[in-house]
Design a protein around this nucleic acid. Structure first.
Lengths: 339, 339
DNA sequence: CATGGCTATACATACGTATTCAGCCCGCTT
DNA sequence: AAGCGGGCTGAATACGTATGTATAGCCATG
C-alpha cells in the first residue's frame, strides 16, 4: 500500500478534533477531557500513528536521545572493546527506554572533533563517555564540553580530577577486598600485576587498595612483587614471566584485570606451577573469567548498576538537577583460582 | 556563555549571504560559487555551527539513522548477549559513520511492538535485526515490516525462509570445515554437541555440514554421537555428561558454539579425559576461545565483514537498490584443542 | 439577567532547514 | 543594440509538531 505516513492532522480529522488537541491528548495534557482523549487515542491506534521524532524534536528543541561514546586509542585493535563496557550496553539501553530516551552509539578516535558534534547538532541531549587508556589525552576536550554547557557523564575514577561528573567503581575497596581475601587464605607473598602509573587512575586505585590491605595485615608492599602490565593477555603473561625471571618468590597474584590475570595463569601453567597453588585474583568479572580453568576469582563490578547510574546521572544533568559523582560498590566473587 | 545555538541564518548574516545559500554551500550544491562557499564555511567554522538534525530530518523526511535491534527471549539472562553480535558493534558503528549514518540501539523483548516503532516515528530510516533463539516467534512481525515497506535486514541463515533480506555466515561450510579438520587429524568418532532442530537454523546448517564431511570421508552420521545442547556452558557440560553416561565412544567433539564447546571441555577435564586427546572444535571464535586452556580451535566468523555487509545491505534497501541475500565465508582457526 | 470564572477546544505561530521558483547580472550572438 | 541564455543568489514556502493566546460554552453567583 505504502500510503503517506499519517500526521497529527489525519488523527485530528478522524477523531473530529483539531491538531493541537491531538498533540495535547497524546502528551497527556490534563486539559483534554477524558472522552476526547479516548477518541484521539483510538484514531491514532487505527492509523498506526506515531509522533514524528524530527518534528517533535525541532519544536521542543531537544532530541530525547543520549549518545554513548566509546573512546579508543588509535593504536588499539578495534575489536578489543573493554568487555565491561559491553556488558553495560544492555542495561543502559534498558534504562534509557525507562526514561523515554533513545541511545545512539559511536566510537571515536581520540583525535577526532567529537566534542563539537552530538549535542551541537541536536542529535543528543546528553553524552556518556566511556574512555579507555590515557584519559589525560582527552582532558582538554572535556574542558571544551563544559565551556559549551554540554551535559555529560563519564566512567572513570572518582577523584582523578575535577573535570565533569563521573561514575566509577570503588576500585580502592576492590583492591583491598581482593588482597584481604588472599591474605585470609594464608598467602603472604602476593604479587601485583598491572601498572600503577598515573595514566590509568583505576589501576592506581586498585594498587592503593592492595597496599592498604597489606598494611592492615602488618605487611609492607614490596616493589619486587610488582610487575607492570596493561590489560591484555600477552601483557599479563609477559609480566609474570618477568617476575619469574627475576627469581622472586610469590604464592599469590592480584592482577588489575581479568584478562591480565588469565595471561598470568597461562604463564604459570606453562611452567607447571598450578593454580590455585599459586592463588590468582582478577578484576572485572568478564565472561571468560567463569569459563577459564580453574574459574577465576575476581572483583566484580555490577554492569547493571553502573549503567543505571550513568544514565540517571546524565539525565539529571539534562534536567538541570545537581549531579554528584557516584562511586559504586564492588563485590568479590570467589571461584577456584584462589583455592 | 551558553548563548543560543547558531542557525543557518546567523551564518548567512556573518557571511553576507542568504540562508538558502548557506544550506546549499554546506551541502555541496555545485551552484554555489567557490568564493561564496569559502566564506560560508569560514563563518560556520567560526560560530561552531552544526546543522540541526531535527530540522534537517523534518525537511528531508528522513533521519540518517539506522536502528540496531537485538532480540532476546524473555527468559534469557539479560547479560548474555551473543558475543559475536557484540563484536560486530564496533565495525557497524564505523561503517555507519562511513555512510553518514548514526546508529541507534535497542533491545527488545519478542513480545513488544517494536515493529511499529522505529521507522514509523522517523527515528530511523532502516533497521538491522539481530535475533537470538527461535526466529519463528517473530516471523509474523517480519511480515508486518514488509507490509509497511520498512527497510530492514537481519542476521540469520541464508535459506531459512523467504522473509526479508538476510546476511549470514556460511554455516554449512563451517560445519564441513570443522569436521574435515578433525577427520584429517585421524579422528573417526566425532561427537556433535548442539541441537539440530529447526528452531535454530544456523545450528541445523552446521549439522548438515558435519554430515557432509563425514560422508565425504566414507562415514555415516551416527545418532548415538549427537547430544542436544543450546548455546550455554552448562548445556554443553550436561550434553557431554549425557554422552558419557550413554557409554558412547568418541575421540573428538564438534560443538555448535564456543560456549558449548567450553562447557564440554570442562566436563571432559572433570573426569580426567584431557583435551586434545579428545579433540574439540567450537564455532564463533568468541574472545574466551583463545583464552581457554587449551585454546579452542573454532570456526571464526568475521565480525567486521558481517557488520559491513549488514550496514551496506540495509542502506542499499533504503536507497531502493536491489538487495540480494549474502552468505559470508567462515575461517577455521586451529588452536591447541584439536592437537 | 448579566457577569465572572472556569473548562475544553480551536487558531495562529515558531522551531531550522532544504528546495522550488523567480530574478538578477553579465557576456555573447545576430 | 536588442535579445538571450547561463551562472548565482534571494524570496517564499513546506515539513509536522507543540504551545501561547483567544474563544466558545457552561454553570454559578450577585
Amino acid at each position: 500500500m505504502m500510503q503517506r505516513r499519517p500526521t497529527s492532522f489525519d488523527i485530528a480529522a478522524l477523531a473530529g478534533v483539531s491538531q493541537p488537541t491531538v498533540s495535547r491528548a497524546l502528551s497527556g495534557n490534563p486539559s483534554v477531557s477524558a472522552e476526547t482523549r479516548a477518541r484521539v487515542l483510538a484514531a491514532a491506534e487505527e492509523l498506526h500513528y506515531k509522533v514524528d521524532k524530527n518534528a517533535s524534536g525541532l519544536r521542543r528543541q531537544l532530541s530525547r536521545t543520549l549518545a554513548l561514546l566509546f573512546f579508543e586509542e588509535p593504536s588499539s585493535d578495534e575489536s578489543l572493546i573493554n568487555p565491561f563496557y559491553l556488558s553495560m550496553l544492555g542495561p543502559m539501553v534498558r534504562q534509557c527506554a525507562v526514561h523515554g530516551y533513545d541511545l545512539l552509539i559511536s566510537f571515536q578516535q581520540l583525535s577526532s572533533d567529537w566534542h563539537v558534534d552530538y549535542e551541537d547538532s541536536r542529535k543528543a541531549d546528553g553524552i556518556i563517555l566511556l574512555g579507555y587508556g590515557d584519559y589525560l589525552e582527552y582532558l582538554p576536550k572535556l574542558e571544551q564540553l563544559i565551556e559549551r554547557g554540554t551535559h555529560f557523564v563519564r566512567w572513570g575514577s572518582g577523584d582523578e580530577s575535577q573535570i565533569g561528573t563521573t561514575v566509577s567503581s570503588d576500585n580502592e575497596q576492590g583492591g583491598f577486598d581482593a588482597t584481604s581475601h588472599l591474605l585470609s587464605k594464608g598467602r603472604r607473598k602476593i604479587a601485583f600485576i598491572g601498572t600503577a602509573e598515573a595514566g590509568c587512575p583505576e589501576f592506581l586505585e586498585r594498587w592503593r587498595g592492595y597496599c592498604r590491605a597489606l598494611r592492615a595485615a602488618g605487611l609492607e608492599p614490596d616493589d619486587e612483587l610488582r610487575a607492570d602490565a596493561g590489560p591484555s593477555e600477552s601483557e599479563g603473561r609477559e609480566a609474570l614471566e618477568r617476575l619469574l625471571d627475576r627469581g622472586v618468590e610469590f604464592d599469590a597474584i592480584f592482577a588489575v584485570s581479568d584478562v591480565t590475570a588469565i595471561g598470568a595463569m597461562h604463564a604459570l601453567q606453562a611452567i607447571g606451577r598450578g593454580v590455585p597453588e599459586v592463588a590468582v585474583v582478577g578484576f572485572d568479572d568478564i565472561p571468560a573469567a567463569s569459563l577459564s580453568s580453574p574459574a577465576l576469582t575476581t572483583v566484580a563490578q555490577d554492569p547493571r548498576q553502573a549503567a543505571e547510574a550513568l544514565i540517571e546521572t546524565v539525565i539529571a544533568a539534562i534536567e538541570g538537577d545537581g549531579v554528584p559523582n557516584r562511586v559504586l560498590p564492588v563485590r568479590l566473587t570467589v571461584r577456584q583460582s584462589s583455592g
